[in-house]
Design a protein around this nucleic acid. Structure first.
Length: 511
RNA sequence: CGGGGCGUAGCGCAGCCCGGUUAGCGCGUCUGCUUUGGGAGCAGAAGGUCGCGAGUUCGAAUCCCGCCGCCCCGACCA
């Protein structure tokens, strides 16, 4: 394994410490050739994740996990800042719990992994181990697809009085949904996420919480991921199983498909009633509590990739990049280079900038440049004898592939400003693309044409019925992504049925 | 569950149709030398239950039968 001194997260021996085998970005399929394959190539070859020995499950590799850690740590702080605390509930849920809320069981029944036995034994024919039929569980256990049931069963014991409210809890966990078809990060059988579960004394307060956490997600998506999102509410058909209202943030990927990046649910009293969670009000009445739940998952990793990256590799916004700056000494045998690189790194680190010095002397600079572009490090500093002589350094930014020579004096200020500029311009670029791909249409022909030729969001009138929504989906594969919050009211007629409508909703083909 | 593809060295592949020396090639790895401002060159070396099982044959990576696994497209769902 690598033994040389390493920068944060990655060793200097090789960019991929875990395999010593950087693959060439030449091998990344271009977006134009096959967007889907581009995504898969990128995820695997930039060291984010890989397929595992288990069908439908992925291995999140060290570099990918370090990005997720940055997401997780940022969100965790945001949750704490809004009054939430973390807790942990069991992976296993008694089967009977899941059936207590009718819509909920309906929504998840088809994709649950079930534990039926608790012991293996050696096969009689010596062929290996088999499930011991003697060890059948009295009550089967479901591997959580989400934790509402086990949590509300617990909340019943935690909540007696209005003084116990609000109860604001989050959990970081893995969940399992037995998907028929999977894609790295976007839909895997097991994934990592956080799920917030809160209890409130009033309907209004719970709705406020639902909206507040949606805002947290939107802020995170836009300010950290540099990914513009549309906040909205789901139609009844797209609503979370067991919710009264599902709010969401919807993002647009570079191929024109939408991606739901986070959801926040107002659960009403559905789970309180299902699990009998009542509290004494301050005027001594008994009432069911009001609930919310909200979550984002490792799916955000997929969103991050598809929102920004290019044919050369990943482009990661500075705020989430495991390494902000890589210094590549152009290795003439020159001790002053190492000294200069170290002193630059020290100066940058003093400002909280995450810096790696590439001390590897095996690979040539050109190779390194390509590798760092592939893994999306926002800023690369090239430092050679020529620079030392001139008192300059080459500064290359990943997002727009520009290079400039800047004076070493004042470099830290320059880099700090540059990182901020990259963060901002990545957002602007994505937002421009997104805004150019919201199209208002008023006829069915136009609706279909825009979906096929431009993609993106299509703002169209809809008669408000699930039947029409489903028919449109069957005809075009487009779904209603959301009804934007504060959506302007406007009279019109449904794009499919011609029935009256009071507002446009956003359709798109989606991940 | 349908349709398609794949399984041969760490990775990516050729060989299979038409059975026959010691199973090749590229990348990577190791050693040495020369290199180093956009993916280095030369020389040498290591590395293989050809997915698994059974069969046909003098002989199977190759043909037959069975099985397993993974990926992609669709159905389901986000």
């Amino acid at each position: 394994m690598c033994s040389r001194p390493a920068g944060p997260y990655l060793c200097s021996r090789s960019i991929h410490c875990n395999q010593h085998q950087p693959t060439m970005s030449k091998e990344i399929t271009s977006r134009a050739d096959d967007y889907s394959q581009w995504y898969i190539d990128l995820v695997r070859k930039a060291g984010l994740a890989d397929y595992s020995a288990v069908k439908g499950c992925m291995v999140i590799k060290p570099y990918g996990f370090s990005i997720w850690e940055n997401m997780r740590d940022t969100l965790d702080k945001m949750f704490k800042d809004t009054g939430h605390t973390n807790a942990y509930f069991p992976l296993f849920i008694p089967k009977s719990f899941l059936s207590k809320e009718a819509a909920h069981v309906e929504g998840f029944a088809k994709e649950c992994a079930v534990v039926t036995h608790y012991r293996l034994k050696n096969a009689d024919d010596g062929s290996g181990v088999v499930v011991d039929p003697e060890a059948k569980l009295e009550e089967e256990l479901i591997v959580r697809p989400t934790s509402e049931t086990i949590i509300w069963n617990t909340y019943r014991d935690w909540i007696q009085s209005y003084r116990d409210l609000p109860l604001l809890i989050n959990q970081w966990a893995n969940v399992v949904r037995w998907e028929m078809r999977t894609r790295l990060f976007l839909r895997t059988a097991e994934f990592l996420w956080q799920e917030g579960h809160t209890a409130h004394a009033t309907r209004e307060e719970a709705i406020e919480e639902t909206r507040k956490m949606l805002d947290v997600y939107a802020t995170f998506a836009e300010e950290w991921m540099a990914m513009p999102v549309i906040k909205g509410v789901k139609t009844p058909n797209e609503r979370f199983a067991g919710a009264e209202d599902t709010y969401c943030i919807e993002a647009l990927m570079q191929d024109g498909k939408a991606l739901q990046a986070g959801t926040s649910h107002f659960l009403g009293q559905n789970f309180a009633k299902a699990f009998d969670v009542k509290f004494s009000t301050n005027d001594n009445q008994l009432d069911y509590v009001w609930a919310t739940s909200w979550g984002v998952s490792t799916r955000l990793m997929g969103a991050l990739v598809m929102a920004h990256s290019d044919d050369e590799g990943l482009i990661i916004p500075p705020k989430l990049a495991p390494i902000h700056v890589v210094i590549v000494p152009i290795p003439k045998p020159l001790p002053e280079l190492d000294e200069a690189a170290t002193s630059i790194a020290t100066e940058l680190r003093a400002r909280g900038i995450r810096v790696k010095i590439d001390t590897d002397d095996q690979n040539r600079p050109g190779y390194k440049f390509a590798e760092y572009e592939k893994i999306g490090i926002p800023v690369r500093l090239g430092l050679g004898a020529r620079d030392l002589a001139n008192g300059t350094i080459e500064v290359a930014r990943r997002d727009n592939k520009t290079k400039e020579s800047v004076p070493l004096a004042g470099l830290a200020d320059h880099v700090e400003a540059l990182l901020a500029d990259i963060q901002r311009s990545m957002f602007e670029r994505a937002k421009t693309y997104r805004d150019q791909h919201i199209t208002s249409v008023d006829s069915w022909d136009e609706f279909v044409r825009v979906l096929d030729e431009q993609g993106g969001f299509v703002a169209a009138h809809w008669d408000g019925t699930t039947e029409t929504e489903v028919a449109i989906k069957e005809a075009t594969k487009a779904t209603i992504r959301c009804i934007p919050l504060d959506n302007p009211q406007e009279d019109g007629v449904c794009v499919m049925t011609g029935k009256p409508s009071s507002q446009r909703v956003l359709f798109a083909r989606a991940y």
